[in-house]
């Protein structure tokens, strides 16, 4: 199986890098971590019997670097959108990211919406329902994760790898059933519906 590219997106200081770090630390010793490059990661994930190597790219979350992110999206098969459960705004900002992804990537892509800092339940500001609604709307899967305790992180990446595998396999065969569409994000849904409408109009004329 080839390498598959995954992009980490989300507002600045939301904990993208710490998720990254945690994912690394589960396999490597603490001493070694310092020598590893903290923006780029390649890791093999086993799904059933098959192996996928995910090459994960970190992006800068600062608002001013937003314009640069399309360069990083290129050829990516999946995107992990991270928000902070103690910060409502970080979830709101995800919608902007999604809109941008839609514009830039323009094809289907596996989406994960991940709420970080689940260990700080007392300070929770974002309701799970909101996040899950958003996830449903976009066709993504929602996860609550804690980079600090390592909760759910492996599960999240495992699920991601699974979905990516499925996604890649189905994309190879161009005949996509409607069932498969439910599982994956239809990023350019609007465009397709528009096209259909246009076709219908053409038929009338």
């Amino acid at each position: 199986m080839k390498k598959q590219k995954v992009v980490l997106l989300g507002k600045g200081r939301v904990g993208k890098t710490s998720i990254f770090k945690r994912f690394l630390q589960n396999e490597f010793h603490d001493n070694e971590v310092t020598t590893i490059q903290p923006q780029y990661l390649e890791k093999q994930v086993k799904v059933n019997t098959e192996k996928v190597t995910l090459s994960i790219w970190d992006t800068a979350g600062q608002e001013r670097f937003r314009g640069l992110n399309p360069l990083f999206y290129r050829n990516s098969k999946a995107a992990i959108m991270v928000y902070d459960i103690t910060d409502q705004e970080s979830l709101d900002s995800l919608e902007d990211w999604l809109a941008e992804l839609k514009n830039q990537v323009g094809h289907k892509i596996v989406l994960m919406i991940v709420g970080n800092k689940s260990d700080l339940k007392k300070k929770r500001q974002v309701s799970i329902e909101d996040a899950e609604n958003l996830a449903k709307k976009v066709g993504a899967q929602h996860f609550c994760v804690s980079a600090k305790t390592g909760e759910n992180i492996d599960e999240m990446f495992h699920e991601l790898a699974k979905r990516v595998m499925k996604f890649v396999k189905e994309n190879k065969t161009p005949l996509n059933t409607t069932k498969s569409r439910r599982n994956f994000a239809l990023v350019n849904e609007d465009v397709e519906t528009k096209k259909k409408k246009k076709k219908n109009n053409d038929g009338c004329c």
């Binding site: 200081r13 890098t17 903290p38 970190d58 800068a60 979350g61 600062q62 640069l68």
Partner: peptide, 10 residues
């Protein structure tokens, strides 16, 4: 401390 793209790109 390990830092990500947030610090690297600037």
């Amino acid at each position: 401390g390990v830092k990500g793209a947030d610090d690297f790109i600037p």
